[in-house]
Simulated assay, not measured.
Amino acid sequence: MTKTNNADVAFIQALAELLDANDLTELEVKREYGENDRLNVRVSKAKDVVQTVAAPAPVAAAAPVPAAASPAPAAEAAPADPASDPNAVPSPMVGTAYLAAEPGADPFVKVGDKVSEGQTLMIIEAMKTMNHIPSPKSGTIKRILVDDGAPVEFGAPLMIIE
């Protein structure tokens, strides 16, 4: 689209506000008005990435600890990036995650629960529509990576099922 109109400007401003209101980092929309008239908008913002590195506690000089023994347990405890875990369940959409059917109700699943393929893990609300997120496989819930009512992005890891 070569010309700018006020409706498009207002639309782009609304997208920017939506980005901030839902703590998103990127939004992309493509609109087709006619055969050769379209609007492609991508709104994104840089987020500060804070990485926390766990340092071992200071050790008294009288009790030396072998260097190879310290880092191994920390590495086994949790993978650095849950998104790279092959057992992670990714979010199929952008929206708000709900772990229970309604406020105050029991969550669909808890850590340690056994789930079967197709069982509802949570709900993601997108555009006022409640979308049930099914388990992609049978297994045990090892970790829940999102909080109830938290915004999620497409592809973000939701849970770890082993």
Rank of each mutant, 00 (worst) to 15 (best):
G155H: 00
R31M: 10
T96V: 12
V29E: 11
K47N: 10
A21L: 13
G104F: 05
D8I: 01
Q13E: 14
F108A: 04
P71E: 07
P134Q: 10
P73H: 02
A75G: 09
T4L: 08
N87M: 04
A69V: 14
E32A: 02
E125H: 08
V59P: 05
I141R: 13
K45R: 15
A77L: 08
P66M: 02
A126S: 10
S70G: 15
L39P: 09
E35Q: 14
Y98W: 07
A78K: 06
A68R: 15
P103Y: 03
A74Q: 13
A77F: 04
D48I: 04
I124M: 03
Y98T: 14
F154S: 05
V59A: 12
A150V: 15
A46I: 11
V146T: 14
L121D: 11
A105R: 15
G139L: 04
A78Y: 02
K128V: 04
D106R: 12
K128R: 04
P64K: 10
T96P: 12
T96M: 06
A54W: 04
M127R: 04
P56S: 10
V9G: 10
V115A: 13
P103H: 08
P136F: 00
N5G: 13
E17M: 09
A57P: 03
V94D: 11
A21G: 11
V109Y: 02
L15P: 09
Q51L: 14
K128C: 02
V59T: 12
P107K: 03
N5W: 03
E76F: 03
P56R: 07
F154I: 15
A69F: 03
S44P: 05
A10T: 08
N131T: 09
E153R: 04
L15A: 07
E28R: 01
P157Q: 12
T129K: 13
L145F: 02
G139D: 11
K3D: 08
I141E: 12
H132G: 15
L15R: 12
F108L: 01
D20F: 01
E102W: 06
A78H: 06
V9N: 12
A10F: 00
P66T: 05
A62S: 12
I144K: 07
A57D: 12
P58F: 00
L158I: 15
E153V: 14
I123E: 12
V29C: 06
L24K: 02
P64T: 10
K137P: 01
T120F: 03
K137W: 03
G139T: 11
P66F: 00
V65M: 13
D147R: 08
A68Q: 11
E102L: 04
V9Y: 03
G139R: 05
M159K: 01
K3M: 13
I133D: 13
N131H: 07
T25W: 01
S70E: 12
V115H: 06
K128M: 01
A55H: 03
P64E: 11
D20R: 09
A126P: 13
D8T: 01
E32D: 14
P86S: 07
F154L: 07
N6R: 13
